[in-house]
Structure formats: C-alpha cells, structure tokens
C-alpha cells in the first residue's frame, strides 16, 4: 500500500534518520535524499541550535517525525505538556504522519528512556488504543505505531505480539510502522517465526517500514542500530514489500554512526528490493 491514509497519501521513497554527526555535511553539500526522519524529542526544545538546524533542513527536505517518548502503552494517561510541545513541532515540520512505539516507558511520572515491551493482553490493547486515538485527535495528524524489539515476554500475555499489534491498530484505527529488524530481533529472542509475524499483520495499515542493523550476543540479539542491515533482515524486507507494496522505508543508524555517504548508500540498497517488487507487480 504505497500511499494510504496512514502516511497521508504520500510516496516518500527511501529515507534516513537525521543525526548530529551528519548536520554539517547535509547543510553544506545538500545531498539528494528522499526524506529525513527526525526524533521528535530532540527538537521539542524552546530555542537554540537544534531548531535553527531543523529550519534549514526543512527548507530543503521532506521531514517525518518519529517519537521515542510518547509511551502509548504506559498506564499513565498521555502527558498533556508533552503533547502540546509535540503539536508545536508538528506545525513547524508539517510532518505528513507521525510515528511512535507500541511500548511503555514511564510510570508515575518517572521515565526510563527505554522502549519497554507490553504484556499482550486485551486490557492493555484497549488502553493503548485509547491513548493513540487521543494523541491523533489532539495532534491532528495520522499516527503509525511501531513494533519494538524485545528481550522479555510476560506470563500475563494472552496473545502473540502480532495479534496484539493487530488488536491495537484496529481498535485505534491507526497505521503501522513496520520495523522488520525489530521483528527479526524479537523472533530470535523469543523463538518465533518472523514470517508468521509478517504474514499476519493488517498489511493495508502499514504506512512506513524501518530497517536497521543489530548485534548478536551468545544468548540474545540486541537491537543496537550500529551496523549495516543484516541479510536475514533484507530477506524479510523483500517479503514485507511483497505483502504491503512499495512503502516509505527508513534506515535507522544511531550508534557508531559512519559517514553520511555510508549510511545513505546502505539505505539505498533497499531500492533493489523495491525495484524487484515493482517488476513482479502485474501491470
């Protein structure tokens, strides 16, 4: 589903995350990039250099906001101040859609700054969907929720992760930011078939895809975003494209960040799969 209501009927192509070590290169060389994803919280500030850079980027590029601290799945209601700041940023960037994670991360006003996994229960799905709806109504922009990678599962869970994701997005009537690397990481940590996951989410709701690299340890895989995309993840990406069609795709590279050119080239590898997918689509 290339353009749909969850990505505001856009077709953005292959993007990369906007990161501090690349600011200078981007502002000076103005490379051709389909779009940039920004971490919303980095620009939810009241002044100074971050906003100056953002405004310069916005003059040249399409920017989509990706959040890491809305915590739709926290038991607390959404933080009003947070939403207000976010809305100010939405007005500034004119983001066609906005994404954040299907996770929790704060309790009683204390923040972990992590994307913590949810218990996959109907009660949690209902509360999370209500938060997503409240955010969308306040922010007045389509929302895609992203599946996170995880290292723990709960006894309390009543369904699989993909069933939970489906339950939440159907209830909230929102989009999915499908992170294929996260699915792979979790499948290895929790012994499930990642293709079963891919095959069983509502494909018509996928508004964006994430790809990234991870790190393998002896007993688990960590979602480190500090490597090129690994082969099994590219394979899953190709399969995802078969299921959902050509979709705005973003490479995440957040640690040990190499040069702009290296990151961008890695992201553009996605084009091979997109083109292959287009060839197989009947005219």
């Amino acid at each position: 589903m290339p353009a749909n209501r969850f990505n505001n009927f856009t077709e953005l192509g292959i993007g990369i995350g906007l990161r501090v070590p690349h600011y200078r290169h981007i502002l000076e060389k103005k490379p051709v990039v389909d779009w940039f994803e920004i971490i919303s919280e980095n620009f939810m500030v009241d002044g100074g250099r971050p906003l100056e850079v953002l405004d310069q980027i916005l003059e040249q590029y399409r920017v989509v906001q990706h959040g890491v601290a809305m915590y739709f799945g926290s038991a607390d209601r959404l933080n009003r101040e947070h939403l207000k700041k976010l809305k100010r940023l939405v007005r500034r960037t004119n983001t066609p859609w906005l994404s954040d994670h299907l996770c929790w991360g704060s309790v009683d006003g204390r923040y972990t700054h992590d994307l913590l996994p949810m218990p996959y229960t109907f009660t949690a799905a209902k509360a999370t969907a209500a938060n997503i709806r409240a955010a969308r109504d306040f922010l007045e922009v389509p929302i895609c929720v992203e599946n996170v990678s995880s290292y723990a599962e709960f006894h309390a869970s009543e369904m699989t992760e993909w069933e939970f994701l489906s339950e939440v997005v159907e209830r909230a009537d929102c989009g999915i930011l499908l992170d294929v690397n996260n699915i792979y990481v979790s499948s290895q940590n929790h012994n499930f078939d990642p293709y079963e996951y891919l095959n069983n989410v509502p494909h018509h709701r996928v508004g964006q895809i994430h790809i990234a690299g991870h790190s393998k340890f002896e007993k688990y895989i960590l979602d480190t975003h500090d490597h090129p995309v690994r082969d099994p993840v590219w394979k899953m990406y190709a399969h995802a494209l078969e299921l959902v069609g050509k979709t705005a795709t973003l490479l995440e590279w957040d640690d040990r960040i190499p040069s702009f050119g290296e990151v961008h080239n890695e992201a553009l590898k996605a084009n091979q799969f997109v083109e292959k997918e287009l060839e197989t689509v009947p005219a």
């Binding site: 290292y151 723990a152 599962e153 012994n191």
Partner: peptide, 16 residues
C-alpha cells in the same frame, strides 16, 4: 517474566 531456553526471567530483566 517468562524464561526461555537460554535466559532465566532474572537474566531477561537484567538486560533492561
């Protein structure tokens, strides 16, 4: 927290 074939519940919490 559920354990798995490689990590105990404690180990998994410890990652976080």
């Amino acid at each position: 927290i559920k354990p798995n074939d490689r990590l105990s519940s404690f180990d998994r919490l410890e990652i976080y």
